[in-house]
Amino acid sequence: MMLTLHREPSASLIRLEGNFTFESHTAFRSATQELLDDPGTEQITLDLSGLHYMDSSSLGMLLVLREKTEEKGIKVVLIKPSPAVMGILKIVQFGKLFEIRED
């Protein structure tokens, strides 16, 4: 998976491309940790438009991120999932946990 971090003063964006699986664990954790450590971060947006697939481990990574951001009052937004990825997010009902913007 390719991961690109676009830093903004308060709302940063992480663009994910390819297949988001267990192998992406270290890259995802270090990118998100950088934003979590920044006291100015108010929102983290994950751009999923380039993702083809997410496995259950990557869904778990989103849950861990959610727990950490909740502690710090940071909002997580998932944007532009492809139909395949949106299908996965729907099955696990992640719309109940995250704000998902499909457009």
């Binding site: 849950l63 729907k90 099955i91 696990v92 009902q93």
Partner: peptide
């Protein structure tokens, strides 16, 4: 019968 519930083990309290 589509999934209408969160997987088990995600939240302390499920709706």
């Amino acid at each position: 019968f589509a999934s209408r519930n969160l997987p088990a083990g995600v939240l302390d309290q499920v709706e």
